[in-house]
Amino acid sequence: MPKDCVQRIIKVGKKSLPSVLTRGMEIDVNYAIITQDDWRDPIINYLQYPTLPYEKRVRIMALNYLMWNGDLVQKSKDEVLLRCLGKKEYIKVMRETHEGICGAHQVGRKMCWLIRRYGYFWPTMMKDCTNYSKGCEACQRHGPIQQAPSVPMNLVVKP
């Protein structure tokens, strides 16, 4: 680990919602390790020590977040608190949602909607879910065949 990286270990419990349990799916994220290059770190520092000088961007971004039981959560528009995840955690959540026990290999938009419904958030959710579903080998192998011509199409002139 580089010398300039700072680590904090945060204990995280199980996240399970009734709608998830009826499907039989439960996502377990045991420990969150926050390093200095994590996107949550400036927001957490600002929320813990608001009197220190911070960039304007961080102060504006922190308006949408709060600390809840030692976790960073986002206040969504529909008044739901979504737990913010780091990179290792959200890769695990995407894998479980896409190809886990109840994963149905959904496309990126549906996968993003499901993850938000389970109560998780990170800033690049839509892009990451889309890239993950496009990179799934099983989806590519068993998905619909793309009917693209192998050569450029030529105009047909009507006589």
Rank of each mutant, 00 (worst) to 15 (best):
G24A: 10
G24F: 15
M25G: 10
E26S: 04
I27L: 09
V29F: 13
N30S: 15
I33K: 03
I33A: 06
I33N: 02
I34P: 08
D37G: 09
D38N: 14
R40M: 15
R40T: 13
R40N: 07
R40Y: 05
P42T: 09
I43C: 02
I44N: 02
I44R: 10
N45F: 11
Y46I: 05
L47A: 01
Q48L: 11
P50W: 14
P50C: 12
T51K: 05
Y54L: 12
Y54P: 01
Y54Q: 05
E55L: 06
K56Y: 12
R59L: 05
I60T: 04
I60Q: 05
L63V: 00
L63Y: 09
N64A: 10
N64E: 03
Y65W: 01
Y65M: 04
L66H: 00
M67G: 03
M67Q: 04
W68A: 07
V73H: 09
V73G: 14
K75P: 03
K77Q: 10
L81V: 01
R83Q: 08
G86P: 06
E89A: 14
E89D: 09
I91C: 10
K92E: 01
V93F: 00
M94L: 15
M94Q: 02
M94V: 07
H98E: 09
E99M: 12
E99R: 15
E99F: 04
E99Y: 05
G100C: 02
C102G: 02
A104V: 07
A104W: 02
A104Y: 01
Q106V: 00
V107N: 09
G108Q: 10
K110P: 08
M111L: 01
M111K: 04
M111F: 04
W113T: 08
L114Q: 06
R117Y: 06
F121N: 10
F121K: 00
F121L: 09
F121Y: 15
P123G: 00
T124K: 11
T124Y: 15
M125Y: 04
M126G: 11
K127L: 00
D128R: 09
C129G: 13
N131C: 01
Y132H: 13
K134S: 07
E137R: 13
Q140Y: 10
Q140M: 12
R141K: 15
R141Y: 11
G143V: 14
G143R: 12
P144F: 14
I145Q: 03
Q146R: 07
Q147G: 13
